[in-house]
């Protein structure tokens, strides 16, 4: 298990718990009562800590290495009834952007998401969840495929940003994202977007134009990461906590600014502490939203989607 710096009380208690269990296993001393007490204490510590996380701590949780990623959600929700599809039909297959056809309770859904890796090798393979232009074009290909056959689109957003590499620029990273914003806005099937981890800037928005955009409780979504914001505005990386506050990037901030449509609660301790619970609530939220959206005629759906994004912004006359 990996612990974040502010989870120290939990990690200490967990250590004690392991020791108590070891001693108990030897059979000389009965530690059942102590184990129960420690387990109780761990839950209490978790609850206390997670009740009042700062924006920066939420950013840390959103990046927790044990956190479930897009394919974990898709595999759990479809119970393995998922056919992954590859490639943008142009340049190559982007490993940082995954997608495919899934079946959930007998309903066909096109799933798309940024994908991170869970160990050093896989993190590199997945390019740390930073898609190249072909990733966005692959995503668009799958969306158009879904539209052709009248299937809804569900996206999972989890990226530190679109990849800012040389080849990405050569192949039109800006155009690829722009095209997705344009095409998603007028896609004639329901689109539901879940922010399951990091929602960094245009790289996130590139698969984020949905009828319903829902953030998990401990995720973030903004125009820039707190670190980059700090380095640009304060010219150093030390103000990331301040930047995280200033950017109003948490789910509650985003909802109060009317930039997202809902927040999905996470298990105490974050999605990774009880992944099964998280999968279950994402699935039920997804099906609930899908039921509502399925009855809306396509033209009305598109109009409402455009109107929703057009209402975003604060200015005075």
């Amino acid at each position: 298990m990996n612990f974040l710096d502010f989870e120290k009380p939990i990690s200490e208690l967990t250590e004690q718990l392991e020791k108590a269990k070891q001693i108990g296993a030897k059979g000389k001393i009965n530690t059942d009562k102590l184990v129960a007490e420690l387990e109780q204490k761990i839950e209490e510590a978790r609850e206390t800590i997670y009740k009042s996380l700062t924006p920066w701590q939420k950013v840390q949780v959103s990046r927790h290495p044990d956190r479930p990623y897009s394919l974990d959600y898709i595999n759990a929700i479809t119970e393995g009834n998922f056919i992954e599809l590859f490639g943008d039909r142009n340049v190559r297959d982007d490993k940082a952007m995954i997608g495919g056809m899934g079946l959930v309770d007998g309903k066909s859904i096109m799933f798309i998401g940024q994908q991170k890796g869970n160990n050093t090798k896989m993190r590199q393979y997945r390019n740390f969840g930073m898609p190249n232009p072909e990733g966005y074009r692959k995503a668009l290909r799958l969306m158009k495929l879904a539209e052709k056959f009248g299937k809804p689109v569900v996206t999972f957003i989890d990226t530190p940003g679109a990849y800012p590499g040389l080849e990405a620029e050569e192949r039109g990273q800006g155009e690829a994202i722009a095209r997705n914003l344009f095409e998603m806005a007028r896609l004639k099937v329901p689109v539901i977007c879940f922010i399951i981890g990091e929602g960094a800037s245009g790289g996130a928005l590139g698969i984020g134009i949905g009828d319903k955009v829902i953030m998990l409780e401990f995720t973030w979504y903004s125009v820039i990461s707190p670190e980059s914001c700090s380095s640009i505005l304060w010219r150093n990386w030390d103000n990331k906590e301040k930047a995280a506050e200033a950017l109003k990037l948490t789910a509650t901030d985003m909802l109060s600014l009317k930039l997202i449509d809902g927040i999905l609660k996470e298990p105490v301790g974050g999605a990774h502490s009880h992944p099964e619970k998280m999968f279950h609530s994402v699935k039920s939220e997804l099906m609930k939203q899908l039921n509502k959206l399925s009855s809306i005629p396509a033209d009305e759906l598109v109009n409402k989607r455009i109107e929703k994004f057009c209402s975003m912004g604060v200015y005075s006359e």
Partner: peptide, 12 residues
């Protein structure tokens, strides 16, 4: 911040 980000969606 995110208000600015959403102008990309709005204009597109």
């Amino acid at each position: 911040a995110a208000l600015s980000l959403m102008q990309m969606a709005k204009t597109s």
